[in-house]
């Protein structure tokens, strides 16, 4: 099949960007979306042009490196799927696709489809851990964790930190990301001692990074490649409230 791509090209953070049109020819339905871009890029290099910069690494949907908007939807049309796992069999000959980077004040563009997501690391650094220095742990089975709690923690811990939730949100809020980590740790008995201070510090950092406020729209949940549920935001708000009041 043949496709038309309109891709955001921006030389660096300071430069002004714009959309450029490319034709993607002879695309196989078994290609992944990124493999389709690889082929377009090989063509650009052969013509002496600079290839489109996009972030990617594992190409198995787990590292969280990849992601951009396809026709206004973060990671494209397939639910629960990162762009590296999206395959071209979901498109038809003649489709026109618009590719843009994540758009958020807190995620400035570095080049083309690559953005700076360091604010996420700083939110984790503010409290997204259990303070357990190496060597101090007791036998693993001395801490019993009910299976339901372990499963719920795992659901939230599946977050890959890709940033799609921020990109999809009209407010560019990072509540799903922050809520997922707070839920993962606060639901476990090991995380209980730092439960409220963790929520307070992480939410504080999230606000300081320039993300918007959550107004319960739910687009984050809709695009999340790991299908993290909105309820993590409730958990975050509850623990945050106790954290500030207590």
């Amino acid at each position: 099949m043949n496709l038309t791509l309109h891709v955001w090209r921006q030389k660096n953070a300071a430069a002004k960007g714009g959309m450029t049109r490319y034709e993607a020819k002879d695309v196989s339905p078994d290609m992944s979306f990124l493999e389709m871009l690889d082929v377009v890029n090989e063509g650009l290099i052969a013509k002496g042009e600079e290839p489109i910069a996009f972030e990617h690494d594992c190409r198995e949907g787990i590292c969280g490196s990849c992601g951009f908007m396809i026709n206004g939807v973060a990671h494209g049309p397939q639910r629960g799927t990162t762009v590296c796992q999206l395959h071209m069999r979901h498109y038809r000959d003649g489709d026109v696709l618009f590719l843009e980077p994540w758009r958020a004040t807190a995620f400035p563009v570095i080049k083309d489809l690559v953005v700076d997501r360091r604010p996420f690391d700083r939110i984790i650094a503010a409290g997204g851990y259990i303070s357990a220095s190496t060597g101090s742990a007791r036998d693993g089975n001395t801490i019993l964790v009910p299976k339901q709690a372990a499963d719920k923690a795992m659901d939230a811990a599946a977050c890959i930190g890709c940033g799609a939730c921020v990109a999809a949100c009209p407010n560019a809020a990072a509540a799903l990301f922050t809520g997922a980590k707070i839920t993962h740790l606060n639901i476990l008995p090991q995380g209980a001692p730092e439960r409220y201070s963790r929520a307070r510090s992480m939410v504080g950092q999230m606000n300081a990074e320039g993300f918007g406020q959550c107004t319960n729209i739910g687009l984050c949940e809709a695009v999340c490649p790991k299908e993290i549920k909105l309820e993590v935001i409730n958990k975050m708000n509850r623990d945050y409230l106790v954290g500030v009041l207590a």
Partner: peptide
Amino acid sequence: DQCVAQGVPF
């Protein structure tokens, strides 16, 4: 033991 203490959801 270390990973359990850190909250790894085994």
